[in-house]
């Protein structure tokens, strides 16, 4: 009997854990989108107020961040300073695909970021500021949608996991 109970607990824990894992995925996307927006705000400050050349600006922000975004900025800056590509767009798109592919950002999120490579660094400060503002609005929409999705799905995943475990337990005992 004790053995059965123990086994059952194990099943519930496992499926519950799986549920939590899925829900974690849903909650990371809005968080990551939010921190990307913060990264962009730092970049905007460097560009609009500091007029710092892009490769320097990217490195200096990378130093203030951690994780994949820091690597992303570092990598982009390297592509630019080594002049691997002739345009910001190519370097930026390459970096988004290579580094941000492993994050919780979805395909449409990455497409949005990639399109920003067309304008980044290519115009005067006033114009750059406008492009940044536009991107904030678009990112905010993605973020809201991601938040909505998280609310809907995260709790469902968690409870589904536990309930499924319980169902298995009841069925087999």
């Amino acid at each position: 009997m004790i053995l059965k109970l123990f086994g059952g607990l194990l099943v519930v824990a496992a499926t519950g854990g799986l549920g939590f894992l899925f829900s974690y995925r849903y909650s990371s996307r809005p968080r990551e989108l939010r921190s990307f927006r913060r990264l962009l705000q730092m970049l905007e400050t460097e560009i609009v107020y500091g007029a710092t050349p892009l490769p320097h600006a990217l490195v200096s922000i990378a130093g203030r961040l951690q994780g994949s975004y820091s690597i992303f900025l570092e990598y982009t800056s390297q592509l630019l300073s080594k002049r691997t590509y002739s345009s910001v767009r190519e370097a930026w798109v390459n970096a988004v695909e290579t580094i941000l592919g492993k994050t919780a950002l979805t395909g449409p999120d990455r497409e949005l970021l990639k399109s920003f490579g067309n304008v980044l660094g290519c115009s005067d400060r006033e114009d750059q500021q406008k492009h940044f503002s536009l991107l904030y609005i678009q990112l905010k929409q993605q973020e809201d949608a991601a938040e909505e999705e998280r609310k809907r799905n995260a709790r469902m995943c968690k409870s589904l996991g536990v309930l499924f475990g319980a169902a298995v337990f009841i069925l087999f005992v």
């Binding site: 892009l54 600006a57 345009s87 005067d124």
Partner: peptide
């Protein structure tokens, strides 16, 4: 030309205003 301009201004048009 667009690429050349980006290279000349170190990918930062805004910094050479």
């Amino acid at each position: 030309l667009r690429n050349a301009v980006q290279l000349v201004c170190n990918f930062s048009f805004y910094s050479v205003e």
